[in-house]
Simulated assay, not measured.
Amino acid sequence: MNPNKTLWEKGDFTQIAQVMRQSGTALVDTLGITKELSILDLGCGDGTTAIPEAKLGAKVLGVDIASNLVAAGNKRAKAEGLSNCSFQEGDATALTDLQDKSFDLVVSIFGAMFAPKPFEVAKEMVRVTKPGGRIVMGNWIPGDPTLVAQILKISSAYTPPPPDGFISPMLWGIPDHVTERFVQAGIPKERIECSNDSFTFNAPYAPSQLLNNFKNYYGPTMNAFEAAEKNGKAVELLHELEALFNSQNNGGDNNTTSITATFLRVTVTR
């Protein structure tokens, strides 16, 4: 079994994605999408950016390794009446079903960064992009003090060491690594741009409920709690995460959550 597939099918990321809709739509609004564009949304989840892209008239294919998220995405597209948006299973390291130079725009927001073999991921994204087309990635930044980077950092301290040869997905948040990967995939350095951007998690409930959703539905956090439970440290992990969520909440009251996280925005011109 593919361990990456197992990780993202373990929980139910749709429970997290519901608090990402507003920022997902806002991000898509900055991409200059028109009806003529053909878009691949890679590591798409249930369509946090793919659905807004399709609503702007583009033809969108969402690809994700998790079958449950693909099913949820197709259900959302059908409910929205979006015949120009479909979802299918696929692995970002080997997009075997997709032809060379097929898409005007490849988008991957907190998706492809989690696939293993990052050089293969960059190569595949470049391969399926048309000459003159663009690749846009959103990647969490290692060591960043904001929410998701800290969730992953705290969680990793409670889980067993990764296997030999493991490459941290967080390296996608470092411009030098991003440049190296795309240059090796054939992109001139001057066509690779990196800048910091922000993404806000908005929920009509308390930070404790959002944390509960991460604990119960987000694969990396689920693994951390399982490991912590075995080591008698689950309460310690919970307290660390509670302090994080509460300190970063700008919701204005105890029953609203609004937490902004910083990410690296990558734009590559093919």
Rank of each mutant, 00 (worst) to 15 (best):
G173E: 00
G251W: 10
A50Y: 05
E120D: 01
L147S: 09
L152V: 03
S23M: 09
P52D: 09
Q18M: 13
M137T: 00
G47F: 05
M20T: 04
A206V: 00
L210H: 11
M125G: 01
Q18D: 11
V183K: 01
V268G: 13
A203E: 10
E124N: 11
Q99E: 06
R181W: 15
D64Y: 00
Q184S: 15
V121W: 02
A203I: 08
N231I: 04
G232P: 06
A149R: 03
S86C: 10
N139Q: 02
E120W: 01
K59T: 14
N196E: 15
I16H: 06
C85N: 13
G186A: 13
R21I: 05
G173Y: 04
Q248P: 02
D46M: 07
A261M: 08
L171K: 02
V107H: 00
Q209E: 04
G133Q: 09
A17E: 14
N255L: 11
S208N: 06
D91G: 12
P131L: 06
G32S: 08
F103E: 11
N202Y: 11
A17N: 09
A122Q: 02
P188R: 07
I135C: 02
R76I: 05
T30F: 07
T34W: 09
E36F: 06
D176L: 14
I259G: 05
V121H: 03
N223E: 13
G232L: 08
I167C: 04
A17G: 04
L237V: 13
A94V: 06
F166K: 15
V63Q: 01
E120A: 00
S258D: 06
A94H: 07
I141Q: 08
I16A: 03
V70M: 09
T14D: 11
L237K: 08
P116M: 09
L105P: 00
P169Q: 03
Q15N: 14
E236T: 15
S208M: 03
A228W: 07
Y217N: 14
Q18L: 14
P163H: 13
W8G: 01
E180D: 13
Q22W: 13
L171S: 12
K35F: 07
K117Q: 14
L61I: 15
V136Y: 04
A228Q: 03
A115D: 09
E229Q: 15
G111E: 00
P52S: 13
A112W: 13
A243Y: 05
P116R: 15
T267K: 13
I192A: 14
K75P: 08
R191S: 04
L147P: 12
F263Y: 15
L238T: 10
S86P: 00
S155L: 07
I135K: 07
P116N: 08
Y217H: 14
N212C: 05
L27M: 03
K75R: 12
N68H: 10
N196T: 11
N254C: 03
I16D: 02
L61V: 12
N196P: 05
G11N: 06
